[in-house]
C-alpha cells in the first residue's frame, strides 16, 4: 500500500481541480476591468478599490465580525459550563436527554432551525406588541449562540472524558476548594477542546447564511446576507474581490496553523500507531 499509484494521484488531482475551478474563476474575474462576471474585458484592480468604498458591504462586514465575536464567546463560556455539568450528571437519563436536545440544531436542516426561531420571535413580538424592528442584532445573536452551542459542547465533552478524575480529587485533598480546583486543574486540561470549540463557533457564525437569513432585520445584515441580496440582482466583480481576499486570509491562517501543529504533533501520531 506504500506504493503510490498513478491512478490514485490522477483521481486526487481531478477532484482538487473540481473543488478549485470555481474558486479560480472567482479570483480571475475579480481582476476584470468590466462589470461582468462572465466576460473578461481586461485586467484591473478597480474592484478592490470599489469594495472598500461600498458602505453597505463594509457595514455588513462589521456586523458579521460583531456577531461572530460576541456569539462565539458567549456560546463557548455557556457551552463549557454545560459540558462540565453534563459530564458530572449522575443520572444517565438526564444526560442522555440533554444530549439529544443538544443534537437537534445539528441534525435539523438549517432552514427549519431558522424558520422555527423566526416564528418564536414573531410570536413574542406579537405578544409584546412590538411591530417595528423586531428582527435585528439581538435576534441574530440569539440564533447564532443557539446553533454554535452544540459544537462547543461536543468539542469540550471528549476532553473532559480524557482528564484524569484523580487530579481533581487530589487538588481538593490538598485543600484546594472545588471551584478553584476546577479552574486550576480541569480547565487547563480541557483548554484545547475549548479553543477548538471557540474557533468552530466563530467560523460557523461568519459563514452562516440560512439561519441568519430568517432572523436578521434590515439593520443587521451580515456579509452572507449582503452577498445573497447582491446575487439576487447582478453580482459585480467586487464580491469576487472580497472572496479573493477572504481566500488568501484563510489560506495564510491555515498554513500558519498547519505549520504550528506539525511541529507539535509527531509524537502524538506515533503514539496512535502503536
Amino acid at each position: 500500500m506504500k506504493k503510490k499509484s498513478f491512478a490514485g494521484t490522477l483521481y486526487t488531482v481531478l477532484i482538487l481541480f473540481f473543488l478549485y475551478a470555481p474558486i479560480a474563476v472567482m479570483i480571475v474575474f475579480s481582476f476584470n476591468a468590466g462589470r461582468s462576471t462572465s466576460v473578461m474585458s481586461g485586467l484591473s484592480f478597480k474592484w478592490y478599490g470599489e469594495l472598500f468604498r461600498d458602505r453597505a458591504t463594509i457595514n455588513s462586514l462589521v456586523n458579521t465580525v460583531i456577531v461572530a465575536v460576541i456569539s462565539s464567546i458567549v456560546s463557548t463560556i455557556m457551552g463549557t459550563a454545560a459540558a462540565t455539568a453534563l459530564f458530572r450528571y449522575k443520572s444517565n437519563v438526564l444526560r442522555k436527554s440533554v444530549l439529544t436536545v443538544t443534537n437537534i440544531p445539528m441534525m435539523n436542516p438549517d432552514i427549519v432551525t431558522g424558520f422555527a426561531l423566526m416564528l418564536l420571535f414573531v410570536f413574542c413580538g406579537r405578544a409584546l406588541g412590538i411591530q417595528k424592528d423586531l428582527l435585528g442584532l439581538p435576534t441574530l445573536l440569539i440564533a447564532h449562540i443557539t446553533f454554535e452551542l452544540p459544537y462547543v459542547i461536543l468539542n469540550v465533552l471528549p476532553k473532559l472524558r480524557q482528564t484524569d478524575p484523580n487530579l481533581f480529587e487530589a487538588a481538593q485533598d490538598l485543600g484546594c476548594p472545588p471551584l478553584r480546583a476546577y479552574f486550576k486543574v480541569i480547565l487547563p486540561a480541557i483548554m484545547p477542546g475549548i479553543l477548538s470549540g471557540l474557533m468552530m463557533a466563530f467560523t460557523l457564525s461568519v459563514d452562516d447564511f440560512i439561519i441568519s437569513y430568517f432572523v436578521s432585520g434590515p439593520t443587521s445584515q451580515t456579509l452572507p446576507i449582503q452577498i445573497y441580496a447582491m446575487t439576487k440582482r447582478d453580482v459585480t466583480p467586487d464580491m469576487y474581490a472580497l472572496s479573493t481576499i477572504i481566500f488568501l486570509v484563510i489560506l495564510v491562517m491555515l498554513m500558519l496553523y498547519n505549520g504550528i501543529s506539525s511541529q507539535k504533533s509527531p509524537k502524538k501520531v506515533r503514539q496512535r500507531h502503536r
Partner: peptide, 26 residues
C-alpha cells in the same frame, strides 16, 4: 488543508461562480 479550504469560503459565492462556468455564454 485543501479539502477544508473551500468549506471556509462563502458557499453563496462558490455556487454563484458555477454560473460563470455553466452559463449559456459561460
Amino acid at each position: 488543508l485543501l479539502m477544508m479550504l473551500p468549506m471556509w469560503m462563502n458557499f453563496l459565492l462558490r455556487t454563484y461562480s458555477w454560473m460563470t462556468i455553466l452559463g449559456d455564454n459561460g
